[in-house]
Design a protein around this nucleic acid. Structure first.
Length: 668
DNA sequence: GTAGGGTTAG
C-alpha cells in the first residue's frame, strides 16, 4: 500500500514538471507580498504568466472599449499606432474590433482596413469574418466571397457569423444564385445550417431576393427558431400583401414581442386594412405589450385611412400617453401631420407641425402635401421655401407636394420652374410620378396639346398615372379625341381598371357622342367589368359614421332626408343654381337626369348631416370616387344658403366649401 | 451578427 502510494507520487511528479517546480517556489500570490518580502520569495512562473495573461486580457478589453468610442478615422489610427508600439500588432481580438469600427465609420475597405489585415500573420476566423462583413456592407460582394475563399484556402474554418455576413451580402445585392451556392456550402461544411443566426439571415436573404417560398422552406426546416425567424417571415408576407398567411403565422407564434405585434399592425395599415390594424393594436395592448414610435406610426397611418376625427383624437392621446408625443418625436409628429390632413383638420396638422422641436424631410413633405391636398397652394410653396432655408433637402415626395400644389392652383409657370430645378439643384431625378404632376398641371390649365406632347416626349416610360392625368384633363375640358389616345394606352397598361372606361364613356356622353358611349360600355361588358358603386360617409356629432350609396332609398330616415334635400334644392334654385346635366352621363331626358343627380351619395350624406348635426359644426363628407361637377356646384351653393362649412374628401383631395366658394378654386 | 418605420401622384 505504502509502496504503491509512493510510486503514484513519483509518477505524478514525473508527469508534471510544474508540480515539481512548485515545491521550490512560494505559493503566495505575488500581489499579496509586501515590497520588503519580494526579494525573499520566488513566485511560481505559471503565476507570473497567468497574471501577465490576465493583465493583457484586461488591456485588450479596454482597447476594444476605446475603439467602440472612436468617432473618426484619426482616432482609430492613433489606437492602431499604440498597438504596434506596444507589441499588440498581431492581436486578432483587438484588430477585429478595429476593422469593425472602420466599417462602421464607412472607411473604404480597400484603403485602411485591408492594410491592417495584410499586416496580420495568422488571422483568426473572426478577423477574416470582419473583412467579409466589411465588404458585404460596402460591396462588392464578389470581394466578400473572395475573402471567404482565401480564408478556406489558408486552412481557417468559418464561424457561424461568417455565413451570416455572406447571406447578408447576397440579400443586399439581391443575388439569390450566389445565396443558393452559399446555402449549399453551408450544408456541406456541416453544423452551420442548424445555427439559429445563420438560418435567420438565410430567410432574410431569400425574402429580400423575392423568393418567399424558399425562405419559408428554410423556416420550416430549422431545428430551432426564435421570434426573429417568425417576424422575418410575417413581414415578408405583409410586404407581398398576403395578410392571411401573415396572420396564420402570427397566431402560431408562441412568444409575441413588440416587434412582432408591430409587424402585424403596420402590415394591416400598409395593406389598406385600417380596421384590422386598430383591432390588432387593441389586442396588443390587452396582451400587455409596450408601444413605441414604430407601432404608433402604423397605427396613426391606419387612423389616417379611416379619416374620422374620432380616431384622430384617440390615437393622439395614445401617443402622448406612451411618451411619444409629436413635440418630442419626429416620426410620430410627421405621421400625425399626415393623419390630421387626411381627416380634414388642416389646422390641427399645422399646429402639430409648428409644435415640433425637430423636423425632417418627412415633416415638411407631409405638411406641404397637406396644404396641397386642401387647396392652399401658396402656403405649400411658402413652406417649401422655408424648408430650403434649413439644412433639410427636398426629396422626390416633397416635389410631388409642391407640384401638386401648383397644379391645383393653376400655377403653370411656377410649376414648370420648380420641375426644371429638381434635378439641376436638388439631385432629384424626375420620376413618372413627377411627370404625372406636370401633365396634370398642363391638363388642368387646359393645355391638352402641350400635355400630350410632354407624355410623348418624356425620357422615361409613362405609366398609368401619366395617361390617367391626361384622361382626367380631357374630362374637365371636354376633349374626346385626346381622351381616346390616352384611353387606348390605359386599356393596354391597366386592362382591368374600370375607372378609365367610365371616364372615357362620360367624356363621350358629355360630347353627345352616344354611339361611342355604347361602344365603350360594350367593351366593359365584354371584359366583365362592373362600375364601382359610389359611396359617401358622413360622421355625426357622436362620432357614428353613416354610409350612403348612390340612389339608395333604404336608410331608416330616408323620408326626412328626401324632404331636406328637396327643400335645399328649392332654395338653391332660387339662389341661381342650375343642375349640371352633363354630369348624368345617360341618354335620358332632362327630368330624369335631374332625378339621377339628386340621388348622388354625397347629396344624400349632406342632407343627413343637415338633419343630424348642430347648426354650427363643420360637415365632413368622405367619398370613394371623385366628386362630380354638379355635386361640386351644389355644395358651393349649399354652403352659401345654409351658412355651414362643408368639407368633402373625395378620392383625390379635400374641398372646403365656404360661403359659396370652394378651396379648390374649381380645379380638381 | 439576425426582426418591426413615416410622407406620393390620375
Amino acid at each position: 500500500m505504502c509502496i504503491s502510494q509512493s510510486r503514484a507520487q513519483r509518477q505524478e511528479g514525473s508527469d508534471s514538471p510544474m508540480q515539481n517546480l512548485s515545491r521550490k517556489f512560494s505559493t503566495v500570490p505575488i500581489h499579496k507580498l509586501l515590497p520588503s518580502q519580494l526579494h525573499q520569495h520566488r513566485p511560481h512562473p505559471a503565476e507570473i504568466f497567468s497574471e501577465f495573461q490576465q493583465r493583457r486580457k484586461l488591456l485588450e478589453h479596454k482597447l476594444v472599449a476605446v475603439l467602440d468610442g472612436c468617432a473618426g478615422l484619426r482616432q482609430v489610427k492613433a489606437v492602431h499606432g499604440h498597438l504596434l508600439l506596444h507589441g499588440l500588432g498581431q492581436c486578432c481580438y483587438v484588430l477585429t474590433k478595429l476593422i469593425r469600427t472602420l466599417t462602421k465609420l464607412d472607411v473604404p475597405m480597400d484603403a485602411y482596413p485591408l492594410l491592417v489585415f495584410r499586416q496580420i500573420k495568422y488571422p483568426n476566423p473572426f478577423l477574416w469574418t470582419a473583412m467579409i462583413r466589411g465588404y458585404s456592407i460596402q460591396g462588392p460582394v464578389s470581394e466578400s466571397l473572395n475573402f471567404y475563399t482565401c480564408m478556406r484556402k489558408s486552412g481557417v474554418g468559418p464561424v457561424s457569423f461568417t455565413f451570416s455576413a455572406l447571406f447578408k451580402a447576397c440579400g443586399d445585392v439581391l443575388d439569390v444564385n450566389l445565396g443558393r451556392q452559399i446555402h449549399a456550402h453551408t450544408i456541406l461544411v456541416g453544423g452551420f445550417v442548424a445555427d439559429l443566426y445563420v438560418g435567420n439571415t438565410m430567410i432574410d436573404m431569400y425574402v429580400k431576393c423575392g423568393f418567399l417560398e424558399c425562405g419559408r422552406k428554410v423556416f420550416d426546416e430549422m431545428p430551432e427558431r426564435d421570434v426573429v425567424s417568425w417576424t422575418e417571415l410575417i413581414v415578408a408576407y405583409t410586404k407581398v400583401g398576403d395578410m392571411e398567411s401573415a396572420r396564420e403565422l402570427f397566431e402560431g407564434l408562441p412568444a409575441k414581442d413588440m416587434v412582432a405585434w408591430t409587424a402585424m399592425v403596420n402590415g394591416y395599415a400598409q395593406n389598406a386594412h385600417p380596421r384590422e390594424a386598430l383591432d390588432c393594436f387593441e389586442r396588443m395592448q390587452c396582451a400587455g405589450v409596450g408601444t413605441d414610435e414604430i407601432t404608433l406610426a402604423g397605427l396613426i397611418s391606419a387612423c389616417a385611412q379611416l379619416g374620422a376625427s374620432k380616431y384622430a383624437n384617440w390615437v393622439r392621446d395614445i401617443a402622448e400617453k406612451s411618451g411619444f408625443g409629436p413635440t418630442e418625436n419626429v416620426l410620430v409628429g410627421s405621421a400625425l401631420i399626415d393623419m390630421y390632413s387626411k381627416c380634414g383638420s388642416l389646422d390641427n396638422a399645422f399646429k402639430v407641425f409648428q409644435g415640433m422641436k425637430e423636423r425632417n424631410v418627412f415633416s415638411y413633405s407631409s405638411m406641404i402635401l397637406g396644404f396641397a391636398m386642401h387647396g392652399r397652394a401658396s402656403a405649400a410653396i411658402e413652406l417649401f421655401h422655408e424648408m430650403l432655408t434649413t439644412e433639410i433637402r427636398p426629396n422626390k415626395v416633397t416635389f410631388i407636394g409642391v407640384l401638386t400644389a401648383c397644379s391645383h392652383a393653376g400655377m403653370v409657370d411656377q410649376g414648370r420652374q420648380l420641375f426644371a430645378t429638381m434635378e439641376k439643384y436638388y439631385d432629384v431625378v424626375p420620376t413618372a410620378d413627377h411627370y404625372t404632376c406636370m401633365v396634370d398641371l398642363l391638363g388642368r390649365a387646359g393645355r391638352l396639346e402641350e400635355a400630350l406632347d410632354l407624355v410623348e416626349t418624356m425620357p422615361i416610360d409613362a405609366h398609368g398615372g401619366v395617361w390617367g392625368a391626361l384622361l382626367g384633363a380631357c374630362r374637365t375640358h371636354g376633349n374626346p379625341d385626346i381622351a381616346q389616345i390616352a384611353a387606348n394606352h390605359l386599356f393596354e397598361l391597366e386592362p382591368d381598371s374600370i375607372g378609365n372606361y367610365v371616364v372615357l364613356s362620360n367624356i363621350y356622353a358629355s360630347a353627345g357622342r352616344w354611339d361611342e358611349v355604347s361602344r365603350v360600355r360594350k367593351l366593359m361588358r365584354e371584359k366583365g367589368l362592373k362600375k364601382k358603386p359610389a359611396y359617401s360617409w358622413v360622421e355625426t356629432k357622436k362620432g357614428v359614421i353613416h354610409e350612403f350609396c348612390a340612389g339608395e332609398t333604404t336608410h331608416p330616415e330616408y323620408t326626412e332626408i328626401k324632404k331636406t334635400l328637396e327643400d335645399l334644392l328649392d332654395r338653391l334654385l332660387a339662389n341661381g343654381y342650375q343642375p349640371n346635366l352633363d354630369s348624368a352621363a345617360y341618354a335620358v331626358g332632362d327630368d330624369e337626369k335631374t332625378r339621377i343627380l339628386m340621388s348622388h351619395s354625397e347629396k344624400l350624406a349632406l342632407a343627413y348631416a343637415l338633419l343630424s348635426t348642430d347648426s354650427v359644426s363643420t360637415i365632413k363628407i368622405m367619398k370613394n370616387i371623385r366628386i362630380c361637377e354638379d355635386c361640386h356646384s351644389f355644395m358651393c351653393g349649399a354652403s352659401q344658403v345654409t351658412g355651414r362649412e362643408i368639407v368633402v374628401r373625395d378620392n383625390m383631395r379635400f374641398h372646403h366649401f365656404h360661403n359659396g366658394t370652394c378651396s379648390c378654386g374649381n380645379f380638381w
